[in-house]
Amino acid sequence: MSAHYAIVPAAGSGSRLGGEAPKQYQLLAGRPLLHHSLATLCDCRSIERVWVVLAPDDCWWRHYDWTSLGHKLEAVFCGGATRAESVANGLRAAATVALDDDWVLVHDAARPCLSPAMITALCDELADDAVGGLLAVPVADTLKRADSGQRVARSEPRDDLWQAQTPQMFRYGLLTRVLAEHPGGTDEASAVEAAGLRPRLVRGDASNLKVTFAGDLRLAAMILQAQAQAQARWGE
């Protein structure tokens, strides 16, 4: 059976969020934002190793205790100038153990509300897929295209439009090749698409939000609290 590994690129600064610390280290529910994503991935039985890719000059990581996340986690200080570079460098770090047919889940450090159920759904639905795919949700809101004066130029049809999330899951060999050939995409699926392949969309959940602005931190805190309460009730 193919193994499952995870890579979390976390070399950016997240300047739109504001604050003194980079986004991935701002506190959420008493822990760095990054901690929540890593904890869920490390706790997943099907994932064997987790690499978090940090900037070479990252001075924040060592300020926190990550030992509770266990032996699966490895921090590598080889982040690049872009997400694609960071993921590619993470893939090189994984080359010591990963085989071409193994699965790699790439997850945003700024999506702290990833749940075990989401990982299970992604892995189960893509288990026999020839390409791989990603979590995504259908676009629900009406879309407006703006003109240069920030007025509505026209409404855009939302039929068949999905909002991409992470994790995005592809074979190690495929992902390594397409990122080398098509490094300009904003996510891994973009590189796979540029190679002429069609990733599968696996329905995710709106709770798997990406923290971008300060208000997103408050929303993420409420989601995490609700998840913890639901888990407590389930365990009773």
Rank of each mutant, 00 (worst) to 15 (best):
A6H: 13
A11L: 01
A11V: 00
G14D: 00
G19P: 01
K23S: 08
Q26Y: 02
Q26S: 01
P32C: 12
L33P: 01
L33S: 01
T40Q: 10
T40L: 05
S46C: 14
I47H: 13
V50S: 04
D65M: 07
D65G: 12
T67K: 15
G70S: 12
H71W: 09
F77M: 08
G79A: 01
G80E: 00
G90C: 05
G90N: 07
L91G: 10
A93L: 09
A94W: 05
T96E: 14
T96I: 06
L99V: 10
D100W: 08
D100S: 14
V106F: 12
D108R: 07
A110M: 03
P112H: 01
L114R: 04
P116F: 15
P116Q: 07
A117N: 09
A121M: 09
C123S: 07
D124I: 10
E125T: 12
A127C: 03
D128S: 11
A130V: 06
G132D: 05
V137L: 01
V139D: 11
A140R: 15
R145F: 07
R154W: 08
R158A: 15
D159R: 09
D160A: 02
T166I: 03
P167S: 11
P167F: 05
T176Q: 15
V178Q: 07
P183T: 13
P183N: 02
G184E: 14
G184K: 05
E188T: 06
E188Y: 12
R198F: 08
R198C: 06
D205I: 13
S207D: 13
N208V: 05
L209K: 05
L209A: 02
V211K: 02
T212I: 15
D216K: 00
I223N: 04
A228K: 07
A232K: 13
W234L: 15
W234C: 14
